[in-house]
Simulated assay, not measured.
Amino acid sequence: MSRLQLKNVSKRWGSFVGVDNFDLDIADQEFLVLLGPSGCGKSTTMRMIAGLESVTEGEIWLGEKMVNKLDPKDRDISMVFQSYGLYPNLTVYENIRFPLRVRKVPKEQHREMVMKAIEMVELEEFMDRRPAELSGGQRQRVALGRAIVRKPTVFLMDEPLSNLDAKLRVSTRAQIKNLQSKLKVTTVYVTHDQIEAMTLAERVVVMNSGRIQQVGTPTDIYNDPANTFVASFIGSPAMNLVEGKLQDGLFKGPGIRVEGLPKHASGNVTLGFRAEDAEIVPSGGQIAAPMYSIELLGEASMITWRIGAGLVSVKTNKDYRAEIGDVVEARIPAEICHLFDTASGERIKT
């Protein structure tokens, strides 16, 4: 049983709060992603789980055991770092074998355990090479093999793909997802890349300034962001956010006017909508303004306007043609819109 619980966990250094009252129950075999910008507390949270940072307040439970006071080696947790952390003088085989030697696993078991790990990360033909002879993606697979060889109860992965190029990121991401489904081990994965989070996670924890902003499935977080921070952090492009006033179901902002919104809210609100949910129209749109830019994305084109102090984007078909400065209109149906309180940033329930 590898259920992981963090009960009101905080980490402080003097007056600085790195993690504030982190409370979460991570299910056995769940793939959970901690997502947020640099400095949001996600890596500190992971390091507290691993035992590399002490807990200022709260409790961390692994199964039926509180592990706050246990040394890292006694927590039965494997961690994969951004920097790989391989021994340059050891072969792939010996790097993956190393945790077994440290934990004094009987030598007669090593070969079978190491070879099974090597096969899982598809490194059979590289097992006699040293790290300097490997590509970045192969080194990351060695680090993964070393983490899985002793069958821990929890995997921790701290930005494992950030040193890889875009193509390798995609293939290694798929391999991590496939490995976790085969191993069925509780996994906590840290990243600032929302695409990684959306493609890998069963649940995502969005963090900012040491606090949890929202917890949910990738679909929940994408479709129903809890506040403007989550809305602006999730999605490529991020959700369009326009400040304005709402009265009797009519939203008015700079260069935008949307009718048919809920009438129970009023005053200063922020209107949000996704680029793919609106559409370019020849006339009668809720936006009609000079086009700021047009970008071909391959499968679509992205039209952008400057609305007030910010930019607003809408996706359209890849064959769309217009010149910068041309007046282009967009239809924004009320049913695709999200409303947020401008002062607090919190979502207004509709």
Rank of each mutant, 00 (worst) to 15 (best):
V33K: 00
G39M: 05
G51L: 00
T45I: 04
K73L: 15
S43T: 15
N95K: 03
L90D: 05
L90F: 11
F98T: 10
V55D: 00
D28F: 04
V67F: 03
K104F: 06
S38E: 00
P99R: 05
L32Y: 03
V55P: 01
T44I: 04
D76Y: 00
G36C: 10
V105I: 14
Y84G: 01
V80A: 07
E59T: 14
L24H: 08
W61T: 13
G36W: 04
G58R: 03
C40D: 01
L35H: 02
G41F: 03
A50Y: 02
D25K: 07
T45D: 01
I96W: 06
S54T: 15
G63S: 04
M46N: 08
F98G: 10
L34C: 10
V105E: 07
M79N: 04
D25F: 07
M79C: 10
P72E: 07
V67S: 04
F98P: 10
I77T: 01
R75C: 06
G63E: 09
L52M: 13
L62K: 04
F81L: 11
V55C: 01
E30F: 05
L100V: 12
I77V: 14
L62E: 04
Y87W: 12
I96F: 08
W61R: 13
N68R: 10
M46G: 05
D74F: 12
P72C: 07
K65R: 15
Y93L: 09
Y87P: 00
K65T: 15
R101H: 14
L34Q: 02
F98R: 05
K42H: 06
G51Y: 03
Y84D: 02
D28L: 05
Q29L: 08
V92K: 00
Y93D: 03
P88R: 04
K104P: 03
V33E: 01
L100Y: 03
D25M: 10
G58S: 06
I60T: 06
D25E: 14
S43I: 10
V55E: 00
Y93G: 07
I96Q: 05
V67P: 00
T56Q: 06
T56C: 08
A27K: 15
F22L: 09
Y87I: 12
L24A: 09
R75Q: 07
G41E: 06
P88H: 08
L70A: 12
F98I: 10
I49V: 12
V102L: 14
P72N: 08
R101A: 15
D23Q: 10
L52C: 10
I60C: 04
T56L: 03
F31I: 09
R75E: 06
R97S: 14
I96R: 01
F81V: 08
L34D: 01
Q29I: 11
Y93W: 13
D23A: 07
T45W: 02
D25G: 07
L86F: 04
N68T: 01
M79I: 15
V102R: 15
E53V: 09
P99M: 13
S38V: 11
V102Q: 14
V33P: 02
S54E: 15
L35N: 03
P99G: 11
T91Q: 08
